[in-house]
Amino acid sequence: MSIILDKVNYVYSEKTAYEIQALKNINLKIDDGEFIGVIGHTGSGKSTLIQHLNGLIKASSGGIYYNGQDIYDSDYKLKELRGKVGLVFQYPEHQLFEATVFADVCFGPRNRGFSRKDSELKAFAALRSVGLSEDFWYRSPFELSGGQKRRAAIAGVLAMEPEALVLDEPTAGLDPKGRDEILDLVAKLHRERQMTVILVSHSMEDVAKYVQRLIVMNRGSILYDGTPGEVFAHYRELEEVGLAAPQVTYLMHELRKRGIPAAGTATTLDEAKQSILQAFSAKHGSVQR
């Protein structure tokens, strides 16, 4: 099972003075059960790209195949695809429209054809899993704080129990604890239910910590596609395209330049800690790890 993008191009406002080619010849194969991160400068085409995955945006040219089926075939059920590929929008405001948070979260499973009762059960479970206090379940989404809206929007997609989860900057606006909780939850769904996850993020630290494969977008094209370690080794090139490496990657590079024999490729706090401790105990005797 997989999602394949074959020579996908997308042009906004085609044939007007404001024509913008947002995606240029994208070839991409996403295997079942992968955990993929997508990074790229603002306007690089990340949101445009992922809205193709559930058919919300139709490619100007090129093809998209979900589990071997052409989603642009006239008899393909695009509506079902939206339930299978759950998309959490960049702005929760674009997703929340019912009178109460609870009704909103029920909408997805109802739409996928679950019974009313099942939909409600799924909604309860999803709301609980994103850590939104019960006090807010029956409020209007517009009375929520930014981070609370974000949680409600994520719950709405989780309640559909999609096969693949696509998240467009899901942690923007979450407090640090909430950011860890949501990403841990996503990682758990990936681990336990083998859910395919595609995470768009501006946090280099978060993608380094969570994803297995990292795709870098630059001006509508794919610039790199590899493990976080491989991608962040290009930190100079990443800077040229508006990005950066995680803070600890720079730290390790500087330490090596100053003659401290610590590994140069750490991308997470844990890796950095381990290699500094190793270098330290080699010199000063053992420390507690």
């Binding site: 990074i39 790229g40 400068h41 603002t42 960049q90 930014g146 900057e169 923007a172 606006g173 501006h202 280099m204 800077e239 508006g242 990005l243 950066a244």
Partner: peptide, 12 residues
């Protein structure tokens, strides 16, 4: 109020 929530590292 959270002006950089949606910005890339450079933009931030």
């Amino acid at each position: 109020d959270e002006p950089t929530a949606m910005l890339d590292p450079n933009g931030r």
